[in-house]
Amino acid sequence: MTADLTGPVHEALAGLPLVDHHCHGAVAADLTAAQFESLITEGEAWPGVSPFDSPVGVAVRRHCAPLLDLPRHAPAADYLARRADLGWPEVNRRFLAASGTEVFCVDTGYAPHPVTTPAELARAAGAAACEVVRLEQLAEAVAARGVAAGAYAADFRAAAEEAVRRPGVVAVKSVAAYRTGFALDPARPTDSEVTGAAARWLARGGRLTDPVLVRHLLWTAVDLGLPLQLHTGFGDADVRLHHADPALLTDWLRLTSGTVPVLLLHCWPYHRQAAYLSAVFEQVYLDVGLALHYTGPARCRAVLEEALEITPFRKLLYSSDAYGVAEFHHLGALAFRRGLAGLLQARVDADELSLPDALRIAAWTGRDNARRLYGPPVSEAARASSGRPTRKV
């Protein structure tokens, strides 16, 4: 082990059971080489440009290959062949277990591939899982069933209330950043505005992209009373990145102060704006998930250092935002542990932070901040080691 990976903070984070407060399922099928490559990029696998020849592709070959019994930096062809030989159940089991995650908070609203359910993800990892409900999916399901424009608001509210009463649901999520961006009128729309917008949308069909109905969705989320997760910043080509800057939410955050926790997901390259919002609004929290595995252990420390420049330590959470390939559940956790431990240990060594404070911040960020907000279930292993009863949700 190199000097960079030693010290009490590294040891503490290496052994800390994580709460991944936002992730997705892993694909429950064997993948072709092209399918795997498409899942390790937010763009596309363009002709002549392999996603393996990118920071995340290099990180997969370096840090994931050993878990498939391959040498570090194994060639991509060898990696894909070994993955195929093992089969998806064993691949998923190895990477999910290696992540050291005790609870996965799973967004079940995005599944263009056959992916594991929260329960299946938990079983493969020997962990626990809970659910995050995606509100745009609910709204589109209400529209697909057939609804009069004047009844849309009440029907959507009823569907959302029913969804959040499902066992294991701990939060709701919106992808408004993709659908309209955040430069919205912050005020709650009137009933007549919602009815008019619903009439236009129901006549047109398609995805929910009407700004009035997106505002209505966000305010309905506030009324539900659960933590609200919002995708911000980095994503695939559907997002207009400059419209996904969380600072555009400032006026809406003023109006919703004192209501529900608002979790700004991913944030990069706007993690400094998100940090500002977390420092001035009581209800705002953030993570830098997704950026962790795309920058990899080689650079994630820099992202975490920037996110923590002014963020209160009780406001930063861990997430992987892993989707599709279980490598990302593992790689996100590994990058987080190493990046956070490196920056905290450096501050301890420079006498800018005491060791007890560093250990406390590590535990808060990796696990306890999420527990405080969501109260998610804990795994049986964690229950046995702590002596606390497992929460039934």
Rank of each mutant, 00 (worst) to 15 (best):
D251E: 15
D238Q: 10
S278K: 00
E282A: 13
A274C: 09
E282R: 15
D287R: 13
R240L: 07
H242I: 03
G258C: 09
W252G: 03
Y285S: 05
Y285M: 06
T295H: 11
A247F: 05
Q283L: 02
L253Q: 06
T259V: 07
L249K: 14
A247R: 06
Y270L: 03
V284A: 10
C267L: 08
L277T: 11
R240Y: 05
D251R: 08
W252Q: 08
A274R: 03
L277W: 07
L292E: 08
A275K: 01
V284C: 11
D245I: 07
D238H: 07
D251Y: 09
Q273P: 02
L249A: 08
T250A: 15
V288R: 01
A247Y: 05
H266M: 07
A237F: 08
Y294A: 01
D245A: 15
A275C: 08
Q283F: 05
W252V: 02
L286P: 06
D245R: 12
S257P: 03
D238A: 15
A237L: 13
H271E: 12
R272M: 11
L249F: 12
H271N: 13
P269K: 15
P261M: 02
P246L: 08
D287S: 13
A237V: 10
L263Y: 04
T250Q: 13
C267I: 06
A244T: 14
L249Q: 13
L241F: 09
D287N: 14
H293P: 12
L290H: 08
Y294K: 04
G235I: 09
V284K: 09
H293A: 08
T295S: 10
P246R: 04
L264T: 11
G258F: 09
D287C: 13
H243C: 10
H243G: 04
P269Q: 12
H266V: 06
A291C: 11
Y294W: 09
E282Y: 10
R240T: 14
G289A: 10
G233K: 00
P246C: 07
S257Q: 15
G258V: 14
G258P: 08
A237G: 06
G233P: 04
V262R: 00
H266E: 04
C267S: 14
A274K: 00
V262M: 03
L290E: 06
A244N: 12
G235S: 13
T256N: 12
H271V: 04
C267D: 02
F234M: 12
L263P: 00
W252R: 14
V239A: 14
G289V: 09
A275Y: 01
V260S: 12
V280C: 14
E282S: 11
L265Y: 02
Y285N: 05
H271Q: 14
L292S: 00
L264F: 04
P246Y: 03
Y270S: 01
G289S: 09
Y270W: 12
L264E: 01
Q283V: 00
L263G: 00
L290D: 01
V284Y: 05
L277V: 11
Q283M: 01
H293N: 13
S257M: 11
Q283C: 03
F234N: 04
H266G: 01
A291F: 05
L286C: 11
C267A: 15
A291K: 02
F281Y: 15
A291W: 05
A244H: 10
L290C: 02
A247W: 03
Y276H: 14
L253E: 02
Q283E: 15
Y285P: 01
D245M: 05
L255W: 11
W252N: 05
R254C: 10
Y294G: 00
T256F: 12
A275E: 07
